[in-house]
Every structure is written in C-alpha cells, then in structure tokens.
Simulated assay, not measured.
Amino acid sequence: MHSHLSFENPPALPHEAVVEVLERALHDRSAEGEAASVLVGTALNDNDADFVERWCREVGMRAVPGSPLLGLAGLCLGHAARRFGHLSDEALALVESLALRAEADPSDVDGRALDGYDDVRSFLHLW
C-alpha cells in the first residue's frame, strides 16, 4: 500500500486568533510550530494587506535569534509582496536585513529569508 503525502496551505484564521498564537510564540518557543502554520496561512490567504504585513514584521523583528520564525517571516513578506504588489519601507528594510542575516549566519536566520528577499525583488521590481 502506498501512502501519499499531501500538503495543504493552512487557512487564514480570524485576526484575534492570529494575534493570540503569534504573541504566544514570541514569548514561548514551544508554540513556534503552531505559529509557523498560522503565519503562512495569514500570508497566503488573509486579504487584509496591512494586517499581513504588520504581523510578518512583528514576527521578523521580535523572534529570538535562531528561531525558525525569522526566516519564515521573510518568506511570508515575499508572499505579501506577490499578493498585494507593495510593502512598506519598514517591511522592505526588514526583508533585506533578514536576508543579510541569513547569508551571514544560517543558524541565526534560515534560508527562507533569502527566498522571501528574492520574491520581493522580483514582484516589486526593486534593487
């Protein structure tokens, strides 16, 4: 019998639930797995561009060094750039900063930040 692995993008959750999960993960690393799913679901499926960007920025600025949420925040900002066609100057600076940190030390920020930076440059025609 073959088992087929399938991947489904997580859904967008109500904003109150997103905030609760992400805030918990920023204070308790044991919640990072759930937070990762919530952040991806928000970046891919929530239609409130300001909310998506704000929480990607919060996670990217506040997660501790070495947290997988740092690279994921950069990647999710790339998703936001693709979906909404713009990012704030603060988000652009964060994406670049996370990518530079990933290049300098992948144990600090993982390589997904580089993918997010590439997406931002491609979709927003920057740099």
Score class of each variant (00 low, 15 high):
85 G>T: 05
60 G>P: 10
114 L>F: 08
70 L>M: 09
62 R>V: 04
58 E>N: 11
118 D>R: 12
98 L>F: 12
82 R>M: 13
92 L>V: 06
98 L>A: 12
89 D>R: 15
74 G>V: 05
106 P>D: 03
100 L>E: 15
119 D>N: 07
72 L>V: 03
114 L>V: 02
79 H>P: 00
69 L>F: 04
60 G>C: 13
69 L>C: 05
88 S>R: 11
111 G>P: 03
76 C>Y: 10
120 V>Y: 07
117 Y>I: 00
107 S>G: 13
112 R>G: 00
65 P>N: 08
96 E>G: 04
118 D>C: 04
75 L>F: 15
117 Y>V: 00
94 L>Y: 10
64 V>N: 12
79 H>W: 14
60 G>V: 09
80 A>W: 09
75 L>A: 12
60 G>W: 10
60 G>A: 13
99 A>P: 01
101 R>M: 03
84 F>Q: 05
101 R>E: 07
84 F>H: 08
91 A>W: 06
100 L>R: 15
65 P>I: 01
107 S>T: 15
123 F>V: 03
121 R>L: 12
113 A>P: 04
98 L>H: 11
105 D>P: 00
71 G>L: 02
98 L>R: 10
79 H>D: 11
85 G>N: 07
110 D>T: 09
118 D>S: 10
67 S>Y: 04
75 L>I: 02
76 C>E: 11
87 L>T: 05
110 D>N: 15
61 M>G: 00
84 F>D: 06
90 E>A: 15
76 C>L: 09
72 L>K: 06
90 E>R: 14
104 A>W: 02
112 R>T: 10
75 L>V: 01
94 L>K: 08
57 R>W: 13
89 D>L: 14
101 R>V: 00
100 L>N: 14
95 V>M: 03
99 A>G: 07
106 P>K: 01
119 D>V: 00
112 R>M: 13
100 L>H: 14
77 L>H: 03
81 A>Y: 06
82 R>E: 15
88 S>C: 12
68 P>E: 13
100 L>Y: 12
112 R>I: 00
123 F>K: 06
69 L>I: 03
103 E>V: 02
59 V>R: 00
61 M>H: 12
112 R>P: 00
91 A>S: 14
123 F>S: 08
95 V>G: 11
68 P>R: 13
63 A>K: 04
74 G>Q: 11
105 D>K: 03
116 G>I: 04
124 L>W: 06
81 A>K: 03
83 R>H: 13
103 E>I: 01
87 L>F: 12
63 A>I: 01
121 R>Y: 01
57 R>Y: 14
99 A>F: 07
108 D>I: 01
105 D>Q: 07
116 G>N: 09
120 V>K: 05
62 R>M: 09
